[in-house]
Structures are given as C-alpha cells and as structure tokens.
Amino acid sequence: MAVSVAVHGHGPDDHGGHDDDIIYQETRDMRLMGFVLFLVSDVVLFSSYIFAYIYLRNSIQPTWPPIVDGHQLPRLDTAFAAFNSVVLFGSGVTMHFALESWKHANKPRFNTFMWLTIFLGLGFLGGQGYEYAHAQIGGWSGNIFGASFFTLTGMHGIHVFLGVCFLFALWIQTQRGVYTEHRFFGLTAGTLYWHFVDVIWVVLFFLFYLW
C-alpha cells in the first residue's frame, strides 16, 4: 500500500472502470466540500441581515413593532405563518425521502416525493405572496420593520424560488438519465440546498413571528 503511493500504480493511461470510480469519488468529495462551503457563505449572508434586524430592533428602536406617525405597527399574522412554515418544513422532509428513494433505486417513489417537494415549495411561495399582500407594516421602504422583514423574507423567497427551479432541473435531469444509482451528486447538492433554505426559515419564523 505504502509503496504504490510513491510510484503510482495507475496513471493517466489507465481507463479501467475502477480508476474511474476513484476519480468520480474524489471529484464528488471536492464538489461536495465546495458546495457545503458555499452554503456556509450563504449562512453568513443571512446572518448579516439577521444581525441588522436584531441590532435595529434591540439597540435603535425603543418599541417593537416600531411606532410610525404616532401609530404602533401591528404584529405579523402568526397563525398563517405557522401553517406556511409547516408547508416548507414538510417539503424538506419529502425531499429527504426523495433522495433516500433514489439511493434505494425506487424511481416511482422518488418521482412522487420530488413532485410533492416542488408543489410544497410552490405552495410556500404562494403563501408568502398572500402574507406579503396582507402584512400591514408599511411596505418595503416605509420603515425599518418593513425593510428588515421584506428584505430578509424576500431574500429567503428568492432562495426558495431558485431552489424550486433547481429541483425541477434536477427532476428533468433524472428523467434524461443523467444520474445513476451511484452517481447522483446533483441530487445530493439539491437536497442540501433545499434543507438549508428550510432551516433558514426556522430562524426567520422565530425572529419575525415568535419573538
């Protein structure tokens, strides 16, 4: 073992299937690490705005929701948000089982869960649209409540939307036979991204509705 390291047992000339697997595995590990680091940097993006929201709410505003033109703004609608959150968390769980089905080569179940995920994701986006239409907090540019709420949830909404597109593209790829039972890094990345988007919502849900 130690010996064959120094003088490579197989070089660029080999085209054996075994070598191919090693290369696939090593490339996959690199891409996975890169993708996780990308998610880390995305976490910082959200954290920055979350910091901004907490800072403005705690250090700058004397009351929350802030008082604008002599009226205190209303709180957001917790009941609907709780319902909408369940929709998104549910889509995270279905995505997890979609990937598990793929790993177990159960294609029909994969398709079911994948479409369930996409529909739940779209449902969440629709719910967000309803929420935006009904939030009486003065719009995006009215005051810092609206600014932080619409910026953070809007950014999250963009992530959800991109995630839905990502998942749809992945589904198309699976139909075209791009992924096999053993080589499906795209699905792994898509699942991680979708989980990440859900977990960001856990934080936002707490900060805007339950705090």
């Binding site: 880390v40 403005l56 995006w140």
Partner: peptide, 24 residues
C-alpha cells in the same frame, strides 16, 4: 468566503437604500 459575504450584505443594503429608499 465568510467575511466577504457580510460585505456583500452591507453593500446590497446600501444599494437598495440608495435606489429604493429602504431604510437601513
């Protein structure tokens, strides 16, 4: 890849405050 993202957030907020008047 960690610190630079915070700058991106700050810049985006400055940009939308300048362009769309969103108060930060």
């Amino acid at each position: 890849f960690i610190a630079t993202t915070a700058l991106g957030a700050a810049l985006a907020a400055l940009f939308i405050e300048r362009v769309f008047g969103v108060p930060f």
